[in-house]
Simulated assay, not measured.
Amino acid sequence: MTEVINETTYDIDCHEFVLLADHVLTAMHVSTAVELNIVFIEPQPMEELHVRWLDLPGPTDVMSFPMDELQPGTPEKLTPAGTLGDICICPHVAEKQAAEAGHSIAEEMLMLATHGMLHLLGYDHAEEAEREEMFTLQRKLLLTFLATR
């Protein structure tokens, strides 16, 4: 079950993020019975999280907080139900990044949500090989989702 919470003044189509989560979890062979929260927050609370957990200044675009450390499943064996975790997205930062990238803020936030879900499933991008794997998968998942809209 995915819950999307908008604590900002931005107009966000929460249902679209539920559909994205269903798409990503299905593609990653994760039970859609897992609990996932996607929370849109203002810059100040995002900066507080960024400083507290990563000791980095300023707000960032997305942060993921895994709970049960679930991993992707296989077509034969889905990842069981559990608590995947929380994703916090800052639309204010996403808006700036979207303008720089030349696409909509909605597309940027969908990409950030996909990125966050992959982090919750154990993917990382600290090493170049990890980065290549994660960003290729992120691109594939987002493009296949957008193709269904």
Rank of each mutant, 00 (worst) to 15 (best):
P72T: 13
T9F: 03
R149H: 15
L141G: 11
T26R: 13
M46T: 07
M46K: 05
T2A: 13
N6G: 10
C90K: 02
P91T: 12
A129K: 02
V51M: 14
P72V: 14
L146H: 06
D13L: 01
F65R: 10
L118M: 02
V24P: 08
T60E: 07
L84A: 10
T79Q: 10
L19Q: 15
V18F: 11
H125R: 04
H15L: 14
G73H: 09
T2R: 08
L70C: 12
E76P: 00
T9G: 06
V93T: 13
I12W: 09
V62P: 00
L78C: 01
Q138W: 03
E132M: 12
E107H: 13
P66V: 07
E48W: 11
E3S: 14
T9C: 03
C14N: 09
E108N: 06
D13Y: 05
L56Y: 03
L20K: 14
L121G: 02
E76D: 14
S64H: 05
H115L: 08
D55E: 06
F135W: 05
D11E: 11
V34Q: 09
M67I: 12
H92W: 11
M67P: 00
D68P: 00
P43T: 09
H29M: 03
L141W: 11
T136W: 04
G102K: 08
V4F: 04
L146D: 00
Y10T: 05
L78K: 13
A129E: 02
N6M: 04
G122A: 06
M134V: 01
G58W: 11
G116E: 05
M63T: 04
Q71T: 14
E3G: 13
T144H: 12
H125P: 01
A101D: 07
F17R: 09
I89N: 02
A101C: 01
Y123K: 02
T60A: 08
E47I: 04
E108V: 08
A94H: 08
I41F: 00
W53V: 01
D86K: 10
L110F: 02
I89T: 04
C90P: 01
E47Y: 00
D68L: 13
V4R: 09
M28K: 14
L142Q: 12
S104M: 04
R149W: 10
Y123N: 02
M28D: 05
S64Y: 07
V93C: 06
T148E: 15
T136G: 08
L78I: 03
F65S: 05
V62G: 06
L141C: 12
L137V: 03
E16M: 12
E42P: 00
M111G: 15
Q97A: 09
D61S: 13
Y123I: 01
A126G: 08
V24T: 13
N6D: 05
E35K: 14
R131W: 06
G85D: 12
A147V: 10
H23K: 15
M134T: 05
T114R: 04
D61H: 07
E127G: 00
K77H: 12
R139A: 09
H29P: 00
V93A: 10
V4M: 02
F65Y: 15
F65I: 07
H92G: 07
I12N: 08
K96Q: 14
K77I: 03
F40Y: 05
L25K: 06
E95Q: 14
L143I: 04
D61N: 12
T26C: 12
Q97H: 14
L78H: 13
E16P: 00
T9E: 07
V4T: 04
S64W: 02
E132Y: 06
E108K: 13
T74P: 11
